[in-house]
Structures are given as C-alpha cells and as structure tokens.
C-alpha cells in the first residue's frame, strides 16, 4: 500500500453507545482506494455498529468521519450513497422476483427519453443491456439479464448484489457477511467479484466470520474487540491461528 496517498475513508476516534452499552470506543483507521480491508471480530465486537456509522444508518456520539478529504455528517443512508459509499447489508440484498437488470437499477431506474420518461416510463431494455455491461466489468457473466434473481444460484445472487454495489459506488463498498450461507464454490465466485471491484479502484470493507475467506481476499485486516480496534495490519502478517487468537483475545 502506498500510504503517502490520501485515504478515501478515514475514521478518527469514533465513539458510539446504545444507552449504557458502549458499542464503539475511539475507533480510528484509514482506508485507501484499491484495497480490500477485512473487518473481523467476535459477535458483539461492534462490526455492525461501525458500518452503520459509516453508511449513515446512525451517527456517532463523537469522532470524525472523513470521506474523500471532507468531514461528513450523514443525515440518512442517502447521504452516504450520494458521497459514493454503497452498503450491502446482511438482510437486504436483492428483490428476488425482479430481473437482474431491474435489481441493478433499483432506485436508480433509467427513464425513457422525452415525454414518456417525464411520465415515469422506464427504459427497461437500456437497463437490461447496461446491467450486463456493468456486471461484466467486475467479472460477472450472468446468463440473461431478463432472468429474475430467484432463478439464480445463491452465489450468483450475491455476486450480482456485490456487482450492483460496485457499479454504483464511487469510493467505498461495504459488504456485511456476503459469503454467509454460501457453499465453497459459490463463495469463490463472490470473492472473485470482490477482487474485481478492488481492481477497479474501489475500497472494499469486507466483514466476515469465515477467516479463510478474509485471509484470501483482503489486503489488510482490522480486528475489533469489545468496540476497540485491537489490530490493524497487512493480511500477510496473519495466519488463521494468529487471526483467531487476536479476535478472541488470546494473542495480544
């Protein structure tokens, strides 16, 4: 990593409490374009709280959030999306009954030109075509963009969801447990998409419990424990054993 570059995302001393529960304590790190960062930690370590802060679901109690060199205060997830951050939450994903193209453009539909577009008519053909193009850019070849997502395999679905995030993000994509519930082969498909997103210059925050996946796809790993960053190091510094030890607090 060329650390002389400006970070695309920087957190400085972020604190977050839910009533008396301290979920995040003085969390600071920098993230750069073109790198995949693994965000790991035990259950309750604060991973979800952290990504919700970054994506604007809630605001930190104190601390600074800097995206692309500007200090930000999100009012809603819309603001973070507008600033170039796309988040794939554990429970959201895609609308299974819509086509791949419709999902890729969900919330950002292309309208027909002229008066019809003004009336809200959608240009479905353009969306289907562009969806294929954009997905191919991150290495996803789906059979037919007219297929509904429910007709895809679990791995294909998650690949499309990540492809969607990668397509719309200018700077950062956040993936919360994207390989959960996937078989080995399907997980590989997803990891390949993550790599492709990095190669396109995006910064990827990858949250996962599956340590081999984290070791395989990330450039750097940030370990959270009880709301604090306990380790921030290059992936090559870890083995499965040492990473597990750091997460559980056996190694320090």
């Amino acid at each position: 990593m060329t650390n002389e570059r400006e970070p695309i995302l920087e957190l400085r001393n972020i604190n977050k409490s839910y009533g008396s529960v301290k979920a995040l304590t003085d969390v600071s790190f920098k993230a750069y374009a073109g790198e995949v960062i693994g965000l790991v930690g035990d259950n309750g370590a604060g991973k979800s709280s952290l990504i919700k802060t970054i994506s604007g679901v809630h605001n930190p109690d104190s601390g600074e959030l800097i995206v692309d060199g500007v200090t930000r205060h999100w009012k809603s997830p819309h603001d973070s999306m507008a600033a170039g951050i796309e988040t794939l939450y554990q429970d959201s994903g895609l609308a299974p009954d819509l086509t791949i193209g419709s999902n890729i453009f969900l919330g950002r539909e292309l309208e027909k030109k002229g008066i019809l577009g003004k009336l809200g008519f959608l240009d479905q053909r353009a969306m289907e075509r562009k969806a294929l193009e954009e997905l191919e850019k991150v290495g996803i070849t789906v059979p037919l963009s007219k297929r509904t997502v429910s007709q895809l395999s679990g791995g294909q679905r998650q690949a499309v969801a990540i492809g969607r995030a990668a397509m719309w993000a200018q700077h950062v994509i956040i993936l919360d447990e994207p390989t959960n519930h996937l078989g080995a082969r399907q997980s590989l498909e997803v990891l390949k998409v993550i790599s492709a997103a990095r190669d396109h210059g995006l910064c990827v925050l990858f949250i996962s419990h599956t340590l081999p996946h984290v070791l395989e796809v990330t450039d750097r790993i940030i370990v959270l424990r009880l709301g604090r960053v306990v380790k921030d190091a290059l992936t090559s510094d870890f083995t499965v054993e040492s990473l597990l030890g750091t997460i559980t607090g056996l190694n320090t």
Binding site: H78, M81, P96, L98, S102
Partner: peptide, 27 residues
C-alpha cells in the same frame, strides 16, 4: 401500464419482493 412500465410499478414489485432491499436501494 403504470404497474408494468413505470417507476411506480417497479417500486411496487420491488417492495413486495423484498422490502429491505427496496429500502436499501433508497426507495
């Protein structure tokens, strides 16, 4: 026509299919 070719109809199907995904997409 509105149900099948407009933005309004698209959101209708999206919400019925997965309201969480629809919300995450900014709807």
């Amino acid at each position: 026509i509105v149900l099948h070719v407009s933005r309004y109809g698209r959101y209708n199907f999206a919400i019925g299919s997965n309201p969480f995904a629809a919300r995450a997409a900014g709807i």
